[in-house]
Design a binder for these strands. Structure first.
Length: 599
RNA sequence: GCGCCCAUAGCUCAACCGGAUAGAGCAUCCGCCUUCUAAGCGGACGGUUGCAGGUUCGAGUCCUGCUGGGCGCGCCA
């Protein structure tokens, strides 16, 4: 099944070929002039250039061929050589019925399934998520869903920051604070035999009594600050880190506890945001790969000694800018974050062998990824071009500077969500919506509204640009917002409930009113928006579509009464409304947004 | 200093390999609830697409230069 755009493009292409011109000139796009046409083709203008002929003449030639096409009510040459196409109501109705019968509501699949790994969010042990994690989570989740829905085999990996110096800092800080933990860890450190599973379980349970996520939240910033100030404190943390890396039992056990409590809380928070990962591969998971990897890189002749460190040079002839090398081993003998990234690429090649890895990470890391990717290609850990950095802009406050709280601190993600949720509750009460809902449902609804507000505000912008985060604007819930989209979905649901004919077999859709035409044309444009979002790794194409669809529905809703219409019209319109709802909810789902039943 | 990104309506953002009259939302103003949820719908106002050149029948889009802003530039991640 293909959309009208594609079907008409084929027809126009054939007409160009019949006129002795290249078929790819037949590309059809939605019309810039809805008053004149539904679709247009500008190929005659381009043809005029290459064939040195009059564009109007070519356009007339093409439209003459198209005159017999039963799908077209109008095919005419206009202006300088535009080809204007208007689809017949019957063809539009056919397309609408096709969509109504399609479980995917018009969305096609990719021709060839690939294995795709999406690396996004990147939460850290013991560090609460802040607004900076929001974009990565939102965009990454949507890209993951879009790729999966289009037919690829996709894994989403949280890329958990669970290793390194900060772990040493934290272990030290926790032991300072709790004598119990200190004793437990030191005792375990001295053990020669591994703990049995039952011993492990009871130790974890004991640790849970003494070290909570709140403790970690509180201790980490303190420890990080002391590490900067006090050399002794820093040295101890380094020693603990080294001991952790050699699996010293007590440290390792405590570290596993950190990772556990953090991950449980993070998964809960992510899930509330509609963000779920298939993998929680941590930096620690590739720790064992690093030493052999370094040996192998050395054998491949890629490692170079420089200023006491071991590096891979990645600069190429013709680079505009001289890229720094990848630092594989520091002069102190430790692995750098680029080393871990490289080892992760190797690990993924072995475990999943992805055709493509998408790194949904802040744009500022562009150089870093370029360096790591080049090193990976040199080492043959990935096929040239298989690694792609999907950069996004920073989230700024209304002053245009990176988002900060009023006190100048970093806003925790949970606080942000709670602020949005409370605005949503307030707004629901004001509008006297959801008054009949029980308290639990009311809260769940407010939560959905809040998530929609946050996510849509982000996803309506192209990911590459910075954007201004303005909670007041987002939570006003008027205009182009997530709640608007939910509201339209809820209106359809309410309508269908009232119609009480959800069990009735889908009625034949007919098209007559302008609002009906426009709505069907919008429904038809879904696959294109989805493909664009897929190809460009840019969910905003889909967000834009969802918004236009909601808007189109709202116009239709205002212009075309359903429940009071005569039976044939009523059934047709209800079927159209139902199809719209399905596509709208599908698009929202691909954005990571879900609509309540009532609000 | 070198490099990357950005600059579109008062504000926040779109614009499908270069095409007709550059579109939405907010804000402002005017209309529309005895009928399906007014978080809605219709309408008005609002633009020399940062500046200057160039390529082209045609440029927000491509090229060059400039101005202004953001970011990055090996032993933190």
């Amino acid at each position: 099944m293909s959309d009208l755009k594609k079907g008409l493009s084929d027809a126009v292409a054939a007409a160009f070929v019949a006129a002795g011109l290249p078929g790819d000139l037949g590309r059809v796009t939605p019309s810039d002039r809805p008053d004149l046409a539904d679709f247009q083709c500008n190929g005659a203008l381009a043809a005029a250039k290459i064939a040195r002929r009059d564009p109007r003449e070519i356009a007339s030639l093409v439209t003459a061929t198209l005159a017999n096409d039963p799908r077209l009510a109008v095919a005419e040459a206009a202006g300088l050589g535009f080809i204007n196409l208007r689809v017949s109501d019957a063809a539009l109705a056919d397309r609408a019925n096709e969509l109504a019968a399609d479980p995917r509501v018009g969305a096609t699949r990719v021709d060839k399934t690939r294995r795709i790994l999406v690396d996004y969010a990147g939460p850290n042990v013991a560090k609460p998520m802040h607004v900076g994690h929001l974009r990565a989570s939102i965009i990454g989740e949507s890209i993951k869903r879009i790729y999966r829905f289009r037919g690829d085999e996709v894994l989403g990996d949280a890329h958990f920051g669970d290793w390194g110096y900060q772990m040493g800092l934290l272990i030290g800080a926790v032991m300072d604070e709790s004598l119990f933990v200190k004793d437990l860890v030191e005792q375990t450190n001295r053990r020669v035999s591994p703990l049995s599973p039952t011993e492990e379980a009871s130790t974890f349970s004991a640790l849970s009594q003494h070290v909570s996520l709140e403790d970690l939240d509180r201790l980490y910033p303190m420890a990080a600050a002391r590490g900067k100030e006090e050399p002794d404190y820093r040295d101890r943390a380094r020693k603990i880190t080294a001991a952790l890396q050699t699996r010293t039992r007590g440290y390792h056990l405590l570290w596993r506890h950190f990772a556990r409590v953090t991950r449980v809380a993070l998964e809960r928070d992510f899930h509330a945001l509609g963000v779920d990962f298939d993998l929680w591969k941590g930096e620690s998971d590739v720790e064992d790969l690093i030493a052999p990897m370094v040996r192998e890189l050395d054998e491949k002749g890629l490692l170079v000694s420089d200023q006491g460190a071991r590096i891979i040079r990645v600069a190429r002839q013709g680079d505009k800018k001289e890229l720094p090398p990848l630092l594989v081993v520091s002069s102190e003998g430790s692995a750098m974050y680029g080393t871990t990234d490289l080892a992760t690429i190797l690990d993924r090649k072995r475990s999943f062998n992805p055709h493509q890895v998408l790194y949904v990470v802040d744009q500022r890391q562009a150089d870093h990824f370029e360096i790591v990717f080049r090193a990976a290609y040199l080492a043959d850990y990935a096929q040239d071009g298989a690694l792609e950095h999907i950069g996004f802009g920073t989230m700024n406050g209304t002053d245009g500077k990176p988002f900060k709280t009023r006190e100048g601190g970093v806003l925790k993600l949970n606080d942000l969500i709670e602020m949005t949720r409370s605005k949503a509750r307030e707004r629901l009460r004001e509008a006297d919506l959801g008054a009949e809902l029980d308290p639990d449902t009311f809260d769940a609804t407010a939560h959905k509204v809040a998530v929609a507000a946050l996510k849509f505000a982000d996803l309506q912008n192209f990911r590459g640009t910075n954007y201004v985060f303005d909670l007041d604007r987002f939570s006003s819930f008027e205009g182009k917002t997530g709640p608007y989209l939910l509201y339209q979905a809820v209106r359809v649901k309410s309508l269908l409930r009232k119609a009480e004919d959800t069990s009735q077999p889908a009625a034949r859709i007919t098209v007559g009113e302008p609002a009906e035409r426009d709505l069907v044309l919008l429904l038809d444009a879904f696959d294109h928006a989805l493909s664009e979002a897929y190809d460009k790794k840019a969910p905003h194409f889909l967000a834009e579509h969802a918004y236009k669809l909601a808007q189109g529905f709202s116009r239709f809703y205002a212009a075309c009464p359903m429940l009071s219409a005569e039976p044939g019209i009523r059934a047709s319109r209800l079927s159209l409304a139902r199809t719209t709802l399905r596509q709208l909810e599908l698009a929202l789902d691909l954005l990571g947004i879900s609509a309540p039943d009532r609000m």
